[in-house]
Design a protein around this nucleic acid. Structure first.
Lengths: 263, 263
DNA sequence: CATTGCACTTGCATAATATGCAAACAGGTT
DNA sequence: AACCTGTTTGCATATTATGCAAGTGCAATG
């Protein structure tokens, strides 16, 4: 039909099959895949069989449903270990989660969203699922704000569009001018917060991580239920901690010194 | 050439390309892939381009080397969240690592090896890389032994072969009869240990996790440097802890009660 | 600065391979 | 037992991947 460039059609389709498996639909039948991608059932059936044979999918022979297989987890581990940011932040996040009892997270920006590279839950915020690999909007999260600190207003609009931003709660920042103010304030004090902006009952505090180029390459955050993180009383203390943690990781990533404001 | 069954050749090849990316060779050039799989360079080039376009690989345009991309991490997270054992053990392992300062791990058996589903390092055993998704031999690790507790001697030999087992140190159990004795002892006391058997300087203590079928489906372990884990003095204490942790996870997995010895 | 070498990409003709249809099959339900 | 839904498989066709060879880009060397 239409060949984008020099790519392999069946491989493309197989990879699209894999991306159909998400947190909200972790197991799929042949017909789900077929309709989800607009393929014939026979094609879907064969693609799934191939993916299963290589261990990328596993099939529950009773329910005839496919799920992601062990090979994916294996590759995921390799991919993580291949990220310098992961290396440099692993010990730090685990220590923070342990000492503060809160969630400790690291994320990078992936286009218009952030993607979690690390997610450790402290004793005060236990979860049974991991946020690893998941994405969240930039404008409604602490880490997302931290990841935008380098961008100019025009770059942000190019990225997020010039319309009002999607609201997740009544506290979500929806206008670009409000976002500008928020980011300016965050930049000056060196950390970002988010309270009830993505979901009610939660808050977080985040700081940017820079590498040897001086650019923001990742963000680290502490997160938890409002009562657990208790920002109204502990903001100063947690800010000091998160800024220091971010700097530790930045230095480990080769960051030398702050760039002067202009050139 | 030869079609195993009803599989898609190019997809098969593309998946093989992905599995070439390992912890020991996390970045590959086109020619590496071509020679590694016995493909022509042009074919390899096109497969890699397709994988990159879907975000499964990323290309460093300067060095022309490919690495695993974000899509892999994304899928890895989904795959983890899809594992009931991961769900049921996440809070427990993070708590153990935190309270004891040791490494806390969960693994499942994957044929002849174990694969880590969880790997949290406590303050006394910091590591910058994750074992998540990696594999280890069954006979030379505590979790591996725990994962074999259900198997009969003949099943073990069918799995591991009847020859002597590979030695990683001079302490590795290499004979099947020694392994039988070790497993019998472990089964009776309810936990497994491993001291200097996979690598010198390390030890661990592990216990089996069972689900509602009563079968061993996973294992949990505490691990660390010999001096950190200090098994010679703390074995009784750590055994109690790891057995209790394993039971907590087993119960969460639907395990009801121990099966009587003979039907 | 030009030259050589290496590694990767791309155009094109050929042949191998994926596809869709239809029939067979399996599992569960009425 | 018959039906319905969903899945697999055989087979002929044409779409699609492949290998070759030329082209391009980059870095090291003379």
């Amino acid at each position: 039909m239409n060949a984008e460039r020099s790519t392999n059609q069946s491989v493309d389709r197989a990879l699209s099959v894999l991306t159909l498996f998400t947190s909200t639909s972790p197991s799929l039948r042949v017909s789900d895949v077929a309709s989800g991608l607009g393929l014939g059932v026979s094609t879907a059936s064969r693609l799934l069989a191939t993916l299963e044979e290589s261990g990328f999918l596993r099939k529950d022979s009773k329910s005839q449903r496919y799920e992601l297989g062990q090979q994916i987890i294996s590759l995921g581990g390799v991919a993580l270990n291949n990220e310098p940011i992961y290396h440099n932040s692993r010990a730090v996040t685990q220590r923070l989660a342990w000492e503060l009892g809160l969630g400790a997270n690291v994320a990078v920006r992936q286009g218009t969203v952030l993607r979690y590279l690390q997610n450790v839950e402290g004793p005060m915020a236990p979860k049974s699922y991991t946020l690893l690999g998941q994405t969240n909007p930039l404008h409604a999260t602490g880490m997302g704000k931290a990841l935008m600190l380098d961008l100019s207003a025009s770059e942000r609009e190019a990225l997020l569009g010039s319309d009002d931003l999607p609201a997740y709660t009544t506290n979500t920042i929806v206008s670009h001018s409000d976002l500008e103010v928020e980011l300016q304030r965050s930049s000056e004090r060196g950390y970002c917060t988010e309270i009830n902006e993505l979901a009610l009952g939660r808050a977080c505090i985040a700081a940017p991580i820079r590498d040897f180029t001086g650019q923001v390459v990742a963000a680290i955050s502490l997160s938890g239920a409002l009562s657990a993180i208790n920002l109204s009383e502990r903001e100063t203390e947690l800010a000091r901690i998160i800024i220091e943690a971010a700097d530790t990781i930045s230095v480990a990533s080769g960051y030398l010194s702050p760039q002067p404001q202009h050139r």
